[in-house]
Amino acid sequence: MRRSKKNTEKYIALSAEGKKFEFRDILNGEVKVNNKTQKIKFRQNNGLNFIIYKNKKYLVDILEKDQNKYEIIVNGIGHSFTVESPFSYRRKKFLEKSKQNSKTESITAPMPGKIVDVLVENHAEINKGEPIIILEAMKMQNEILSHVSGTIKNIHVKKNENVMKDDLILEVEK
């Protein structure tokens, strides 16, 4: 046996929205939904990957994966999942509990583009929903709003700077 001992019978997939799915013996291509076992089949066609489930065809794609973090596309809609083992799932829950009192929140660029204007200053108070920067993407100027209330801590961008998606714009202290 040239593999380490692992619990490979059960996997837990957690969505970014907190949905939880459990799969047993997943490589068999079966899922249990409401105690009924359903077959899931993979089809490759013309460079596209499909899943056949309950006689329906779904276009699927793995957009990104980083260790156990997945970004999956099903019929054009993206879903973020982390895949956990029973142990790592418990660990995750434990760490979440102990982390709930974190103080700073980051605001990141929702799309790639150019910073046209920074509307806030360091140490300023900001309320949820107030605009913080104007970002130009695809020739449209978009106001980026704060999703938290608090004090602006660090502004990481400057006017006329280009940002990529998910680049840190600033941090807000709650």
């Binding site: 837990i12 997943i26 899943i51 699927v60 879903h79 999942f81």
Partner: peptide, 9 residues
Amino acid sequence: IMLAAFLAS
């Protein structure tokens, strides 16, 4: 959503 979870796992 379930199929996305399935595919990831």
